Amino acid sequence: MATNLSAPCVPPPIHRSLPSRSILAFVNRAISKPVIFRETSCPRLVSVRAHTPGTDGFGPKRVASSQEPDTSIGFSSSPSPSSVIDFLTLCHRLKTTKRKGWMNHGIKGPESIADHMYRMSLMALIAGDLPGLNRERCIKIAIVHDIAEAIVGDITPSDGVPKAEKSRMEQAALDEMCKILGGGMRADEIKELWTEYENNSSLEANLVKDFDKVEMILQALEYESEHGKVLDEFFLSTAGKFQTEIGKSWAAEIISRRKSMSAKRRS
């Protein structure tokens, strides 16, 4: 029996490697027009699962299920340079807004929101591996978990804002920031990471929640040492609230050092 075989769909050869995204962005700005690459007529089978991170933690998995043209090359999912700079300019407030809890206790020159998130990101980077944990996703969550405070500021329990209202305000701020970024895949990822942390809905969120408390009590210990203050409030408010073994062990080390420092002062 004769069988008709259609010729395979082969894209035209590329005679030189494509430039990196950073170079493409530079060229794009220089000519003030989007860079458009000619698509081949060959479709590929892909779909996007928006809520499942890839094994490397740097984006959603793509799995075969339906026909879709190949648009992996180009700027279809990238925010415009104008949107990027607007977004980053807004995020500058995270660098200049001081954490209110320390200000309320008379700490001069306290850390900023960005300072707090940066050290949390380092915690995620150096933490040991846990079964089923995506460490790269932890880093991402740490980077964005307080990002809405660029608009709403650092709302603390002493402000008397109900938890539900605080969450609503931050959600609205996050939506506005993602709109400034221009929407798209990157904005959606930020929203997903922030919501995951807010809802404490994954092992990664559990660990970053612990890092949030660990960073705070470590900072409290450092301010006690530097400023000669007693900051019991921060240790009492976090006692017994750590969810992971990493969080519990790191908090125990900080508390042990605090006890040693206190004993030396009394001796």
Rank of each mutant, 00 (worst) to 15 (best):
D232P: 09
R265S: 10
S262L: 12
R266Y: 01
H116M: 08
K100G: 03
I36G: 00
E39I: 15
D210V: 04
L90F: 06
F242C: 07
K264Q: 09
H145L: 01
G240K: 09
M261S: 06
S262K: 15
A205D: 05
G57H: 00
L130G: 02
M123R: 05
E136I: 05
E136P: 06
E196P: 07
E39D: 14
I85M: 13
D175G: 07
A25H: 00
R168K: 12
M123A: 05
G247E: 01
H145N: 15
G228K: 15
I31Q: 09
S32G: 12
Y197A: 08
C91E: 07
C138H: 04
D129A: 07
H145Q: 10
S77F: 08
G74A: 01
N28M: 10
C138D: 05
K191D: 06
D86T: 11
E215N: 13
C42A: 12
N199I: 01
I14S: 15
S41T: 15
L122C: 13
R186V: 02
T55W: 07
I254W: 06
W250P: 03
D129I: 04
T89E: 14
P13E: 13
M216V: 03
P110Q: 00
H145A: 00
S6N: 15
V144G: 11
K241H: 14
C138V: 11
L5H: 15
P79S: 05
H227G: 08
E253S: 05
A220D: 04
R266W: 02
D154M: 01
R62F: 08
M103T: 12
Q67D: 02
S237W: 03
P131G: 01
E136V: 10
P79Y: 01
D129H: 03
S112I: 06
I85L: 11
V144F: 12
A164I: 03
V152I: 10
V48E: 13
L88S: 11
E198N: 15
E233R: 15
F234C: 06
P79Q: 07
K264Y: 02
T3Y: 10
R16N: 09
P8W: 08
I113C: 06
S201F: 00
L45Q: 14
T71C: 05
M185S: 11
S237N: 10
S260V: 03
S267E: 13
N200M: 06
T97G: 00
C9V: 10
M177E: 01
V84R: 14
S78G: 04
A30F: 01
P162N: 00
G128W: 06
G109Y: 08
E215Q: 14
T97Q: 12
D175I: 05
V161S: 12
G132E: 05
L88A: 13
I139S: 11
E196L: 05
N104Q: 14
P60W: 08
I246S: 10
I190A: 12
P43T: 01
Q219S: 13
V161P: 09
A263P: 06
C138A: 04
L133I: 11
M120T: 09
N200A: 07
S41N: 15
E189R: 07
I155D: 04
P34W: 06
K209N: 12
A7E: 12
R21N: 05
R137M: 11
F75I: 00
K213M: 14
H105G: 02
K140D: 09
L207C: 03
L207S: 01
A114V: 00
